[in-house]
Structures are given as C-alpha cells and as structure tokens.
C-alpha cells in the first residue's frame, strides 16, 4: 500500500501551482485519493508515470461518476440581539453544492508492484458540453474506457484520438448512466403500437386543436 498523502505533498512541491487536494476515504477500505484540477491532470499523470520512485505505468481502471446537485442543511449557532439582549439562536443554513461529473483513475505500477493510486478529476457542472483532458496519449488503456464515459456520461475528452460512442449507437442522443436519465417511452421505439402503448402514442402524437388548445389538452 502506498501513502497517498505523501505523494500529494511531493506533487505539490514538484509541480507548484497545480490544484491537488487529498480526499480521505472513511470506509474500511481506506483507499484515499487525490483530487486533481482538470487543467493540471496531464502534467500530474506524466509526472507520476515518469517518476523513478513511483513509475505508475499501468492505468487499470477509468470510471465516470455522476453527482447530482445537493442541498445540505446545517444548523449554525448565531448570536443575535433580541429585545436588546444578546442571545444564541440556532439557524438552519441551506447550502447548495452544484452537481458535477467526476472521472476516477486507478493507477498501478507493474515493475514496482504497488498501487492503487487513485486520481479524480471533476468537471465544473453537469451540462452537455463538459470536457476534461484525455489521458489516452499517456496510457493507451484509457482509450476505450474514456470512450465509454463519453458515451454513457457525456464527458468530452480533449485530445482523445478517436472519441466516438462505444456501446450505444452513434445516433443516440442521451447519456444513460447519468443519475437523472429518463428512459424513453415505449411508443418511441414500438413500430406497431397496440394496447396501452397505442393509447400513449395517440395521446402524444395528436396535435392540439387550433380552436381551443387549452381545453383539449389533458393530463
């Protein structure tokens, strides 16, 4: 097992100005990770691969993770002046953490037989045009796995030599592994709808009447 925290400190001195943050893991596995700023990812990866003491030459696993927008309620104690007297009052503060997409890399070293070192990089938001630098030029094992994340999560990898959908077909538009993905209704793919599917298809496809549009529409 390698010491992720000491690698983080070494990285901070070797590559000053890079956004590197240590992320602890509270679970029994204790596999802590390094949160790398997206723009510095390639430099950090290259350093880890070339460093003679670490030699992370094997990128095992690349994972996409979707984090939805979260609101955290926290109770904060405040001193307030009530009727001329200072009193401690508890107040609930709502804090909104914007959603983001995350890519997690598991690195190992084959000659030195250590690992895993876990890197994570986050996008700013979870819209459809988010990008991270591709690590395929450094480790080729990322080629298909980054294509899969592009396919299922919608993260664009800048510098990937052949970024296409991997599992879904090329004409498909959505990203199925996102947490807010809604499956298409049956009628969209049913060539000969019947029964309840036909009813839904009719309800969907009948154009609203031009005379009284508000009355014909029903839920």
């Amino acid at each position: 097992m390698i010491d992720t925290e000491s690698i983080a400190n070494e990285l901070k001195t070797a590559l000053p100005g890079c956004g590197i943050e240590f992320v602890a893991n509270p679970s029994p596995s204790a596999q802590s990770s390094l949160l790398i700023q997206g723009t510095d990812l390639v430099a950090v990866a290259q350093w880890l691969k070339d460093h003679s003491e670490y030699r992370f030459d094997y990128l095992s696993n690349v994972t996409g993770v979707d984090h939805l927008e979260k609101t955290i309620k926290e109770k904060v104690k405040k001193t307030q002046v009530v009727d001329g007297e200072e009193q401690e009052v508890e107040e609930t503060v709502e804090q909104t953490i914007p959603g983001y997409l995350e890519v997690v890399y598991h690195l190992y070293s084959m000659p030195l037989r250590h690992g895993p070192l876990i890197l994570r990089a986050r996008t700013g938001n979870r819209s459809n045009d988010v990008a991270l630098p591709s690590l395929t030029p450094i480790w080729r094992s990322a080629e298909f796995q980054e294509r899969e994340i592009f396919d299922l999560y919608g993260v664009t990898f800048d510098g990937h030599p052949d970024l296409r959908r991997l599992l879904m077909w090329d004409e498909f538009e959505d990203h199925p592994m996102r947490k807010d993905y809604v499956e298409p209704d049956d009628y969209e793919y049913e060539p000969t709808p019947h029964g309840p599917v036909l009813e839904r298809a009719n309800a969907h496809q009948t154009p609203p009447s031009t005379d009284a549009p508000s009355e014909t529409q029903s839920d």
């Binding site: 679970s27 596995s29 598991h106």
Partner: peptide, 8 residues
Amino acid sequence: RPKPGEAY
C-alpha cells in the same frame, strides 16, 4: 448497508 466510502 456499507458505510459511505469507496473501494476497488
């Protein structure tokens, strides 16, 4: 229900 965290 495992505790929050991650493992590979």
